[in-house]
Design a protein around this nucleic acid. Structure first.
Lengths: 332, 332
DNA sequence: ATGAAAGCGCTAACAA
DNA sequence: TTGTTAGCGCTTTCAT
């Protein structure tokens, strides 16, 4: 190893150039696909030396030059409890960005801390990505919105009912389809179950829009088919802290439902423990089934959502200031 | 709005300086906490103008100057199917990095494509983070290892049995504790269940080390207590593509186990559907229980793992070339 | 209390 | 085919 790099420093194009006996601009050209301009032996020498020294291009210097960062940020808002990241969303975003050799940054925002104007999170304070994919079902806190507007940051809201700059799955249509499928299979006593949320959120539509939309989709199809919608709710909201099996008495008895449309996976396993031959449809971020249980599971179309989100941000980068209408993505 | 920024360009310190009538170095000082050197009205003016123009510091320029990127990369290796990211791992890494105002990049590596020397992933081609947290249970592909060594990239392997530069949960100890707990509760017929893996992986220890370690921990404690270890395996491996409920006949009958130590959550719901009063301990990345089911769930200590991983990389940045022994993190 | 100048590593325009 | 030069935005040292 004739030419060693500084032991604790980064190897630069200059180091490679020195070791290979060429100028550092030649190194830049050769390492960036414009090698046809050089003698084959020069190219080979530069390549070999770069490899030996363990040269890696500086992403910081490159983005500075290019005027773009080469990454997007996935922003996860969370209250006290850790926000859940649907793995397939992460995967979809990575895949989408890889395709254009960009990468994904993940940042958490604490909803409470965003109330004050001070101490904004990094992605709002700095130009540290080319755009923000914000996974948040409600309205953004004022300070964050102000900053995004003032700095004209390309962004898109995920799973958010906002009319602009938003991408979300079509929960209403999915609930309709799920219910219709059960009716088509011959079921008549089909109940809707939501063990997680308070009735006013389900029936009136506050909080996460999907809580209301899934119920609406179910209820509409039932009514249209001349069947009676039935909501099975926990008499008391089960909070994160005190999760336990929901009471399942209504699954037995003469008028018991033969099928269930469940808001989420929560409680489904318990329901099937009580009535093994219940037909169940549920919605979720996970895979096509719940660990070995016979459930028709409607998967949130996260890959398509990721694609739409990246496209929306790219559009804003190209056409700054343009107002983008929200995108509804259908379930598979 | 007297001084507008270029509509489609980024606002720089220069722009702010011009609008506020000071030099751009003054802006840098004022915006970075050295405002005591300036007149209060200058400080106020600069602050106000920066806010109005939506100035954000360029992370690229800053890291170039600083000689460090200010982020770490979480690397997810995956085969064909999407790799799962334990949400609590992501959360733990974010939290750990936030504490030092750094951020997290996520990159997927495709194990097959790493076999060829060409076309390495971005984090190996470029200096795009200060270190790699590689979530991979096997040996790294040769080209990746070579590159990491040649470029002296700070890194740590997660959930990996490697003796150096690795951080992993102590599955062996956890399985021992889980089994001991069931024995202490009075159980005698305790079975070990793994419906996902082939016997040679469980008993001989190829593939993911935890597959073998959890079995070993269980078997040792059982034997030490004078009880007979019993492995309940699927007669045929259940592949991703054909997941279905495992056959559960062995949970009934006179000699049936009263308790179960399960490799993972897979199959637990089905087992409890068959025998509701079975005592079950399982291991997993998720929350403290499986959707409403009575299971003693041993949670992989992902927050502590994240902390150890970041610490290991920081250590390598400070002491390049030092060989770090693997870190074993205990379950809670 | 404020400004001038240098340089981080890279690429692109221009010279030779 | 190769080298020279300038500048991206920022921080820091030095001079005023």
């Amino acid at each position: 190893m004739s030419a060693r790099a500084r032991p604790s420093g980064k190897v630069t194009q200059r180091d490679v150039a020195r070791a290979a006996g060429v100028s550092h601009q030649s190194v830049s050209f050769i390492l960036n696909g414009r090698d046809h301009l050089f003698k084959p032996e020069t190219v080979a020498a530069v390549r070999r030396v770069a490899e030996e020294l363990g040269y890696r291009r500086s992403a910081a210097a490159r983005s500075m030059r290019a005027g773009a960062i080469g990454s997007m940020a996935l922003v996860l808002l969370h209250h006290r409890t850790a926000s859940t990241v649907p793995p397939r969303l992460l995967d979809g975003l990575c895949a989408e960005l890889e395709a254009t050799s960009r990468s994904l940054v993940v940042e958490r925002w604490q909803a409470e801390r965003l109330t004050e104007d001070q101490d904004l999170p990094r992605q709002l304070r700095e130009v540290a990505s080319d755009g923000l994919v914000i996974n948040w079902t409600q309205a953004l806190p004022e300070p964050a919105m102000r900053r995004i507007a003032a700095a004209r940051i390309p962004h898109v809201l995920l799973n958010n009912p906002a009319p602009w700059h938003a991408v979300r799955p079509d929960d209403f249509a999915a609930a309709r389809a799920a219910t219709a499928e059960l009716i088509a299979a011959g079921h008549r006593r089909i109940a809707y179950a939501d063990w997680l949320h308070e009735p006013d959120k389900i029936f009136a539509g506050s909080d996460h829009y999907s809580i209301h939309d899934r119920w609406r989709g179910y209820a509409e199809v039932m009514t249209a088919a001349g069947l009676a919608p039935r909501a099975l709710l926990h008499e008391r909201v089960i909070m994160e802290e005190e999760r336990r099996a929901p009471p399942l008495d209504w699954l037995r008895g003469p008028d018991a439902p033969t099928a269930l449309v469940s808001y989420s996976d929560y409680g489904v396993a318990a329901a099937l423990t009580t009535v093994p031959d219940l037909a169940v449809a549920s919605f979720g971020d996970g895979g096509p089934d719940i660990d070995g249980l016979p459930v028709r599971r409607w998967q949130v179309p996260l890959a398509a959502i990721a694609r739409a989100a990246v496209a929306a941000i790219d559009r804003q980068i190209e056409h700054p200031g343009e107002k983008l209408p929200a995108v509804l993505v259908g379930y598979r």
